[in-house]
């Protein structure tokens, strides 16, 4: 198992009921698998970063990674 810190941003916090949590996933879990496990509409446009960098589709996560999931903001 690997530990991943999931950081939710903006209204996603209200959908999931938490803003930051460290969760356990099987080794080699992909970003998509983690997103699918969250109570957030899969069709909702999101921006996902891993340790502050953009993630490529199918990217496998490592123990200790930080995944930030945000709605798409376009700037005030």
């Amino acid at each position: 198992m690997i530990k991943i810190t999931v950081k939710l941003i903006g209204p996603l916090i209200n959908l999931a009921g938490y803003s930051e949590k460290t969760l356990e996933f099987p080794a080699e879990t992909t970003v998509e698998e983690i997103l699918a496990s969250l109570p957030i509409d899969p069709l909702r446009p999101k921006i996902v970063t891993r340790n502050g960098q953009a993630v490529a589709p199918g990217e496998k996560l490592k123990d200790g990674d930080r995944l930030a999931i945000s709605p798409i903001y376009s700037g005030g």
Binding site: G10, P11, N14, G52, S70
Partner: peptide, 18 residues
């Protein structure tokens, strides 16, 4: 979408992350 829950201030956490 719940945008107004945090309005523009949701951006702060995102900027901090990236």
């Amino acid at each position: 979408t719940g945008w107004s829950i945090q309005s523009t201030t949701g951006v702060l956490s995102w900027c901090n992350e990236v």
